[in-house]
Design a protein around this nucleic acid. Structure first.
Lengths: 191, 191
DNA sequence: CCTATGATTAGATAATTATCTAATTAGATT
DNA sequence: AATCTAATTAGATAATTATCTAATCATAGG
């Protein structure tokens, strides 16, 4: 991570109100704007202002339900940035996390048969993520799926839909709410 | 770590010049003021200004040799603070939002008369939440109420049922769907 | 199409702050 | 004591920003 980005991150987090918002989201899960405003004793425009800043550094994301937008913490991002601090002066950061298209192709060729089904799930996280990404690409962003639909979709690739479905949640590809599943924004994906 | 302290830390580190100083000290070991000023193309007073801020958060310490003061990075501190980031929002950060049972009793006694009705709605959010919680406790979880039923229930406590009903939604005590109201699970309540 | 609700944008204001030059302080050396 | 060197403080200025009110936008539901 380069200097400017790190500055931007700290500048954003170095504010009383914004830290309190982060705290609220951490303890309370997703909240909508007016709830945050109420709890902090500030007006909605002010909260809006802070939320856009928090979104800029990618630490909160949003989900819309009717007229209400729920904001939630991207905790993984938090961890990554914490790590970045200790490596402040170092230059060779981040590279090891990138995956090239070529690498993806190779993994897909190795683990997916000519019939399109998964021959076996790789054990290594990096490769698993590539497979998961491949599966989830068949789903539509912004659409809400009931659990059976998800199962059905996964079964096209692999019989163990329960494990894979769980990994979708675990690795932040999707969100579950009351039995309904929805893709997370791509920036949240770990790949 | 306290909220204020965390804010102070991030505010301090969230500055282009100061991060560059940290970077210099990390790669170059101890440096004296004028050397830093030279490398960054700034004047000594400016560097002095930033160094006092970095000393405030205890991330830089100094050693004097004759007239020259050498500044060095406290890397252990850096690690500690990085760790604190992942705990943003944990435990004691939100202390001021916790409410004890004793506190609740006190508020209820103050705002609710012997007839069980609300004498006046407190303005302070924390107290309002206590009153709202009290009112909503008379409703049953999992049951779906039409709007008139809700109004009726609230009117036992206060005549302004519209405002209170709206606050139930706003503060996530309940959900409305097509004119029907249902309690949210308790974990969602802000109290 | 109309209305209600929640979010965002625009614009204003007051507070904070990064930076400079000029002046001052603190040690060290002669 | 006089002088040199490095650091700090004072004071000024320009830029940034947290917050508010008022206005606008976007979506849902009739």
């Amino acid at each position: 991570m380069q200097l400017d980005k790190l500055v931007h991150f700290h500048k954003t987090v170095g504010n009383h109100t914004r830290l309190r918002i982060i705290g609220l989201l951490k303890e309370g899960g997703a909240l909508h704007g007016q709830a945050i405003a109420g709890k902090l004793g500030l007006t909605p425009p002010t909260i809006s202002h802070h939320l856009t800043k928090l979104k800029e550094i990618d630490i909160v994301y949003q989900r819309r339900d009717k007229n209400t937008i729920y904001y939630a913490l991207n905790e993984r991002k938090l961890d990554l940035l914490a790590e970045a601090i200790t490596r402040l002066g170092d230059d060779d950061m981040n590279e090891e996390l990138q995956v090239t298209d070529e690498e993806k192709h190779k993994v897909l060729n190795n683990f997916i048969g000519t019939d399109g089904r998964i021959k076996s799930m790789p054990a290594q996280l990096k490769k698993r993520l590539i497979i998961l990404e491949h599966i989830i690409k068949g789903l539509e962003a912004g659409k809400s799926y009931p659990e059976p639909k998800i199962n059905e979709h996964i079964k096209q690739f692999h019989d163990d839909f329960a494990t894979i479905r769980r990994e979708f949640i675990m690795h932040q590809f999707m969100t579950r709410d009351k039995g309904y599943y929805e893709l997370n924004p791509r920036e949240l994906w770990l790949i």
